[in-house]
Amino acid sequence: MTWITSLLLATVRMAVPLLFIALAELYSERAGMVNIGLEGLAAIGSLVGFLVCYITGSTWLGILCGALVGVVVNMIYAYATISLCADHIVYGMAINIFAPALASFIYRVYFGTGSDLKQIELMAGIGIPGLKNIPFFGDLLFNQTPMVYIAFLLVIVTCIFFNKTRAGLNYKAVGEHPQAAATLGIPVVRIKYLSCVLCGALSGIGGAYLTTCYSNTYSQGNVAGRGFIALAAVIFGRWTGGGVLLACLFFGFCDALQIRLQVGSFGVPYQFFQMIPYVATIVVLSVIGAKKGGPQANGKPYRREQR
């Protein structure tokens, strides 16, 4: 029982960074912006979150600055893809190369090449009074760090925004058919930029979560492919808030399982367990196959007055 409880507890904890990054991509793709630079955005977010927290001692400030730097870096992507009509995939790749290089450079310059481990205090968990005493579910859902609550709230907000509000429908129209949206007076370019702001902020937060709420140090490559797994989660979740939540919980479960199994070992090299999340991603994508889904104008450049 405890093994299962701790496994599920770890599942929630591992799903949260994925959830932030996947929601970032959801907001981006709903406006027709395919951003594969999430890995890089999360990397720089995680470094800045760590650094700010290390200097000021405040995890909240760290997460805020992680979000800010995510936005700043993503604005490069936004300008190149929206205003200059650069290829989304190629430019996302450029961000994936640029942002981690910047992150490791800043780390090297600030801390030098010394090998002593720099650590910060993790964000403390806050239990919700009353609810946290429910057996089993109490610990699982109501005795976590505030970031976990924020992530789940965001999913609800996202679902309502995209399905129940006029602004959300307008937002989706930009991703489906920007020309038609423009004729209705929807400010297409502005919404596309807005989507990039949201995407940068959320993936920055997802990265910062890794250093301020999950592991208390920064190491190069700590995002470990989560940016790409989040991309898979958006496809798996069929571009909806609820679907993305389920997909992230699934991938989070794979990650948690991997860690639990490593502890058990069973005489199998631990690397085989570490492969689980990646193999799961491949299997999931292969099983759901090429059912066409997602916004119609996803990844296509938009130019005014052009058909």
Partner: peptide, 17 residues
């Protein structure tokens, strides 16, 4: 009909491990 970007990246991690 899969998106080759994500798949190939995942294969990178598998290969490294």
């Amino acid at each position: 009909g899969q998106n080759e970007m994500i798949i190939t990246i995942m294969f990178n991690y598998v290969a490294t491990l």
